[in-house]
Design a protein around this nucleic acid. Structure first.
Lengths: 189, 189
DNA sequence: GGTGAAAATTTCGAAGG
DNA sequence: CCTTCGAAATTTTCACC
């Protein structure tokens, strides 16, 4: 019965291929191969500068263009790379205020959460929105032009669904802000 | 004396040209022209997808390639567009934990702030780091692989400089997370 | 993983409304 | 400031080893 162990617990890296060989007629998402050191390097580079040419990225990670390009394609297909975006200077477009908002809810039902999540997600001022463990139920990072705009946002927030408590903390100075995730340079095998 | 009013209070849009005509031998940074509706559209598009071709962006904002390209060049030169980056899926690279950390400092001197800011900025786990107004002095958003990694970070943090209070709040679910700033579609003249 | 080459884009300059 | 028309340089993309 050892063969069956392939289908339990930790699936082997290429379990999808195994399943495909059985002609199962279900949609099998391509599992992403474990990222090796070069993939991680590519991600580190692209997280800092996505305007580089494939050849330049290849140079930096020690690969020629084609294999580098293929890895990038795979990382995108696997959803490891979500998208490429331009980062804009908040102050240069007049969005001077960042606010961290802590929310405590009065209602913990699924229906309430659904309504709250949809309402808050739809607000463009909300750049991050997490459900939390502990004393605070939700945490938001909000960006607005000025206090008047924040007041508009605040009223929108508290009128969307019933809330027990809302605490707004205003940022005076942005000391660090990055989009690059801390990818460990070396991976223990 | 009306001429002198040009050099006081709200400077006119092209004050740098005015100063240049006086042959002042100082470095005068090119002021960025106020962003018009098309510039804002370009920024909105590029904040969502920086992999589009200039021609495609031009189509979406109602411009042919050349002027669209020139505007993008200018937005980059002016620093409105900071850079282009790839966004990576946090979970796909094993970084499962997001933590919001509130810090109260015991020391409010410049020297302390400098040391603290440098130490925290150097930590790759810290993705955002703000100095706050009010009860909390600093707010951090930290990303780590697991609790053990968070413990390592936490010990690093509290041993870097003396702190009065540190509160860690753990995220259970990321409901929304965007890098696109909320650029108002229409601007009042 | 590498080479090479076709196809597509980028990057500008020029002429004109 | 926009449009269209090039056209060279660069990059992307892919067939093949």
């Amino acid at each position: 019965m050892e063969g069956f162990s392939l289908y339990h617990g930790n699936l082997p890296l290429k379990w999808n291929k195994v399943l495909q060989m059985t002609d199962v007629a279900v949609q099998i998402p391509e599992t992403s191969r474990r990222l090796d050191a070069i993939d991680r390097k590519i991600l580190m580079v692209l997280q800092e500068d996505a305007s580089l040419s494939v050849a330049e990225i290849g140079d930096r990670v020690g690969l020629s263009s084609t294999p580098c390009w293929k890895r990038i394609q795979r990382l995108e297909a696997d959803g490891v790379i979500l998208k490429r975006v331009a980062l804009v200077d908040q102050n240069k477009i007049g969005l001077g205020i960042s606010v961290f908002v802590s929310v405590e809810s009065s209602d913990h039902s699924d229906a309430w959460l659904k309504r709250f999540a949809e309402a808050v997600s739809a607000m463009p001022e909300v750049m991050e929105f997490y459900r939390m463990a502990g004393d605070v139920d939700y945490m938001l990072r909000v960006v607005v032009a000025d206090m008047q705009a924040y007041d508009v946002f605040y009223k929108k927030l508290i009128s969307a669904v019933p809330l027990k408590n809302v605490t707004s903390r205003f940022a005076m100075e942005k000391i660090k802000s990055v989009t690059a995730l801390p990818i460990p340079a070396v991976v223990a095998a």
